[in-house]
Design a binder for these strands. Sequence first.
RNA 1: GGGCUUGUAGCUCAGCGGUAGAGCAGCGGCCUUUUAAGCCGUUGGUCGAGGGUUCAAAUCCCUCCGGGCCCA
Length: 503
Amino acid sequence: MSETSLRDIRLQKLARMRELGHDPYSIEKWEITDTAAGLKEKFELDREVSFAGRIRAPRVMGKAGFADLTDSDEKIQIYIRKDTAGDLAWELYNLVDIGDHVGVRGKLFVTKTGEKSIAVQEFVPLSKSLEPIPYGHEKDGQIFSGLTDQEVRYRHRHLDLLCVPESRKRLIQRAQVVSAVRRFFDDIGYLEVETPLLQLNAGGAAARTFSTHYNAYEQDVKLRISLELYLKRLIVGDLPKVYEIGRVFRNEGVSNRHNPEFTLLEFYEAYVNLETMMARVEDCFRFVAQRVFGTTELAGIDFGKPWHRLDLLGAIEQHTGLTAEDLTDKERAIARARELDVPAKAIAAGGFIDLNADRNLGGLIEKLLEVFIEPTLQEPTFVVGYPIETSPLAKKDPANPRMTRRFEGYVMGREVCNAFSEINDPIDQRERFEQQVSERERGDDEAHPMDEEFIYALEGGMPPTGGCGIGLDRMAMLLTGAEHIREILLFPFMKPESTEADA
RNA sequence: GGGCUUGUAGCUCAGCGGUAGAGCAGCGGCCUUUUAAGCCGUUGGUCGAGGGUUCAAAUCCCUCCGGGCCCA
């Protein structure tokens, strides 16, 4: 049967319902005395109930029939007889399809086979589903067939939510993760704030931007790539504990861990150092795991325990032999890396390093981190001490001015957070930005732009401050075991489907 | 961006040079305690799009458009 005629048949049924004086789309409300789960839990024979849900698995036999009705998380069986519900209700029952919403009133009873059910006295269609919902067949709690096409699942998420229980559960958990994070920071005295998405000078991260245009001011504007700079301006304004959970936009490719817009948490706290930031991260993961999943042990990781601490340069020396001394100068670092057979070691570690690649010393150090260290960080671990070139907003390490007071957290080999002691010296910050601007002039379109407004704010005096960012999508992926970022985004960005116009 | 793979009925899939198939859904019939209801009958497809090879293309080749996995 073609798509149109399936739809046409349903339209005909809708027309018939209207003839009978029951336009489902005209109904505004239906009393719900119980949820499906509640009906089964607190089952009382012969109790009068009123319930609404979607029709699934209608089974008609002669002048009686069964169907399952599902509410948001459970199903309950209904039983309708022509003689007790009446001719009108019986005809309406025969006009509903899988996926229609209906309201019922009736009495609870148990069938011969022991199924708790509603004996329907009143049956009212509340909405018609014109397009079939691709429910699978369910037996013993297992779904057969159903919706498996991932493209359809992502493009038409309502079908995924209706037809793929694991996906439904995961997406709900993702929402609960965000909610729990918010609760965590509220509970420890942070203020949740909102800062602009539309910015003249998108900064705070190394990323390409999206551009748009503000007509009223004839002004080109960018979508933000981080929350950082505005939040620190609030710290200067003596709001000493602030956080924001917000969407940021990075103009980069799509992968199983990248979507062009994603949800970022950033939190800033005055008068605290990296140790406090680490404790916040540990506490946050522990709180969220416990609150959403009821356990601190997820995916084989115990978030109840403190995370490991690892010095970046020390770890590089351990894996490659390159000392902190070797890594003070790019030429020297490359020469020593050749002597120590670092490219061969990289291949042995399952990675690849091209010593001739165009990058600065900081880039080389981060490459060494990526190849030799990240894959080994299965247990939650903070890697501490990042090179200055790649950390233009982090305080210099007094013990090694080539490095910064910055850490990243890793779990199961993947980065989950990025934190530093924020630069509060406006002179230092200006120099860092100037360095970034020269990188940008050399063609690095991810380098940080100058931001005079931000520096002006720092000149107002910012207290020593710890700051941290956590990608909440990746956090949700980690906690739910999702392998693809699209599994925890309700509406991931999808390429437009081709149309006839393209041909 | 590169490699591999995939797109066939509303859904899940088979067919891989010779008249487009199955299960479920749908439609019609029987059936007043079924539950993947059952039994009988039956409708439904520009085989992702375009081009090519061939007597003949869902099937082989090319291009394009989606999706997935791996790599960058």
